[in-house]
């Protein structure tokens, strides 16, 4: 058996099938398997469980943080929603008030317009009535005036003959009844020749 020293310094020319790059040397293969087996055992038993534990803890911590963040976000969203709801409500309220005011204004306007037109109608009617009344009065006054004038005139023309009460009364009656059936215009035309005649 060659000793370790000579083996270590052996010349490279030494012929060996194990110099082949693709022929696995059994010793190396076995050492490789054993080395892998030992390391696998250590990693699987002692290392990976601890790493996984920490990983899970960290995931939990991160998730906890995320939950917190989610909660904060949810809160913020809720606040935003509330604010928006309030805003919408306020807008609706404002709209409603505006609408109310508009319809109220329209109602007031309509009422005032109605009142104004009623007032106008009333005033017009009153004016009409007054005018009618005045005319009536004027007619009546005119009629008595005309009657008196006519009587005066007639009595002047006819003289004493009309002193007779009965006769005078008859003449007046007839005259008046004629006036009655005639228009005020005709009254004037009737009266005018009478005044002209004097």
């Amino acid at each position: 058996m060659p000793n370790a020293l000579t083996a270590a310094v052996r010349a490279p020319e030494a012929e060996s099938v194990w110099t082949s790059p693709i022929l696995p040397q059994p010793g190396e293969l076995i050492v490789g398997l054993i080395a892998f087996g030992i390391l696998y055992w250590v990693i699987a038993k002692l290392v990976v469980p601890r790493f996984e534990e920490t990983y899970a803890q960290r995931t939990a911590a991160i998730e906890g943080g995320m939950e917190q963040a989610e909660k904060a976000q949810a809160e913020a969203e809720a606040a935003l929603r509330e604010y928006q709801a309030q805003l919408a409500e306020a807008r609706a309220e404002a709209g409603r008030i505006r609408e109310e005011a508009r319809s109220e204004g329209a109602a007031i306007l309509a009422e005032m317009r109605e009142k104004a037109s009623a007032d106008a109608a009333r005033i017009t009617e009153a004016a009409h009535k007054q005018i009618t009344a005045e005319r009536q009065q004027a007619v009546i006054q005119l009629r008595s005036e005309v009657g008196r004038l006519a009587t005066d005139l007639a009595s002047r023309i006819v003289g004493e003959s009309l002193q007779d009460d009965a006769r005078q009364q008859r003449v007046i009656e007839r005259f008046l009844s004629e006036l009655e059936t005639a228009d005020p215009n005709q009254v004037r035309t009737v009266a005018t020749p009478a005044t002209e005649g004097s």
Binding site: E52, A56, T59, A60, I62, E63
Partner: peptide
């Protein structure tokens, strides 16, 4: 806990 994996 372990089943909850953060998605990549």
């Amino acid at each position: 806990m372990g089943d909850r994996e953060p998605q990549d």
